[in-house]
Design a protein around this nucleic acid. Sequence first.
DNA 1: TTCTTTTGTGCAAACGTTTGCAGGTATCAG
DNA 2: CTGATACCTGCAAACGTTTGCACAAAAGAA
Lengths: 355, 355
Amino acid sequence: MNAEFENVCHTMKFEAVTIKDIAKALGLSTSTVSRALRDSYEISPETKKLVLECAEKLNYRPNPVALSLKERKTRSIGVVVCEIANSFFSQIINGIESVAYDRGYNVIISQSHESYDREVVDLQFLSSRGVDGVLVSVSTETSDYEHISNLHSKGLPIVLFDRIAPGINTHTIIIDNFKGSYEATEHLIHNGYKKIAALCPSEFLSISSERLAGYKEALGANDLKVNNDYIKHCFYGGMVFSEIEEAINQLMTLKDPPEAIVTLSDKLTLGALKTFKRRGLKIPDDIALVGFSNADIAEITDPALTFVRQPAFEMGKAATELLLQLIESKRPVTEFEKRILSPEFIVMESGNSRS
Amino acid sequence: MNAEFENVCHTMKFEAVTIKDIAKALGLSTSTVSRALRDSYEISPETKKLVLECAEKLNYRPNPVALSLKERKTRSIGVVVCEIANSFFSQIINGIESVAYDRGYNVIISQSHESYDREVVDLQFLSSRGVDGVLVSVSTETSDYEHISNLHSKGLPIVLFDRIAPGINTHTIIIDNFKGSYEATEHLIHNGYKKIAALCPSEFLSISSERLAGYKEALGANDLKVNNDYIKHCFYGGMVFSEIEEAINQLMTLKDPPEAIVTLSDKLTLGALKTFKRRGLKIPDDIALVGFSNADIAEITDPALTFVRQPAFEMGKAATELLLQLIESKRPVTEFEKRILSPEFIVMESGNSRS
DNA sequence: TTCTTTTGTGCAAACGTTTGCAGGTATCAG
DNA sequence: CTGATACCTGCAAACGTTTGCACAAAAGAA
């Protein structure tokens, strides 16, 4: 009595109903059915009604793969980030997904894990899987951008965000890194600190040099000298905790150690907090701290963290909008936008004056 | 002089080279080329060599969409979670991506944002986009599971993880929620606390009842009575901060307020920490706290947080392995596995005895 | 009646692959 | 010289759609 159920249960494949099934059921041709479904003017109202009803009854869903093949687009976009499990990037992906969802696009994620080789493979994989465009934030190790510019010159729409690659003529979207670190540094200066160190991500990264420039400029604008001993780079930017511990150790054992520190990325901020705690250093009395952070931690540290928050969700949204605009544009786009989002500076207590 | 470059720049589409191009270039038929590429025994070594070289030269990449159409599978899997920007879930996605990457599958992410309606749409969208299978963790609002069982009975491979749906006969993978909260509660008891409250996610969620059972059992096993005033549910489990604040307010204004609290999810733990800080409550002297957490915060709170850590990455990996096994199985699978991962209990300071 | 127009429908090609079948050409044995 | 046996290659169908073109029938105009 339950032949259909049996059938369903023994076929692994989820046998979808096609336009052919409708055509057969109605004694029409597939073309008529197709036209009826797309409400073409060539089809009589009665036929349309019939087809629509039948499609409804059979629960017809157009096969997206067949459409992709025909139209040569997949309605999916690829994303390459260093790491998903990182507040900043997961918030970005949230933004990406929100726009993509509204516009009917799939989001395909891949991670470089800060490896150049992996980034190359990821990008190759995504493009070979036929995504309509990609959103890229380069890895720490990346200093050669040919894998990106190659795809770009082949016509694959690309939007670069946050960590951008120089020399690629396309839309980019970043935050005002200079401003973020300038404000952070200035805040410390205004609270009376003069010996301020900076903990930076890899020197290769665009964000790193921009943030470092903001730090230096803030010192200069307040008649403070830049001391190179106070500038430490962590190549893997915190993926490797020991890197941070080591850098802070070096700072704190200088004959003239800093009284304050600005940490120029999410992971570095977290790592610094952890290191201070392990070494029993009190904030801000032993060392003041202001850092970039998108994790939801400001209010749970003691004292509460003064930090630079990046508009990650907005960045993801904006990047996706730019990408879809590129993808859906009828004519080649030659004018590219360089959008700059403003970071938020949130004053709590960790950068306050010493008591 | 630069016709090719011009051409590339004025075509939006990224014109891929096909098997036909190779066939034309070599004066062969597409079938011969196809066979040569797949190293068929029917093709002479010389022809193969020729074809391979030509493919290499032209940088041929098989079109995955055409393959999908032919083989009726897309080599992509869908994931439905409540939220990406949540440490626990982003770690899970990391695990999913790691396995999928190794096996050549794409991962397509979607978020329910804890909404039942959105979950239904997401699942519908993924299945209509032809994913080969889906990984699902249900939303807080979900109490009717028909949208999932419908797809499942149509033959779509599904694996449920963490927040599982009852009554669906497929692989499931969860952590030992009972054990996690039992240990957390017992730790507080062993440190001398008797008045212990529990802050739980929505009652609908499988994880919620399991964790609550662990809490109750630990109390019972130590001759403590369960006090229903001490049990608070946050329906949106922390998506709405005020919910947590409100619940804690209610607890702390009881005539006999608790001395300790166990928070039974990541977000609840974070929210509780924040609330205590805002109200100036000192841990553990004013109130002790032990909670579930996968965020990297244990070592930066003051005092350091004693917590239950879920093996999220492993869960993502295991779920994906089970799903791919289902997808790639030749014959229908009828025996399903219910895998249970063990949480880690990490003792720091926030649940210690009062000084 | 005959010629045009309108209306409704179907054929077949195309998107890029794979593959069963048939056909071709050597090579070899008898 | 003939028949069998390799070995190599191509035709065409199929996967599910869309769409240019052709065709048929009916209606309107002359």
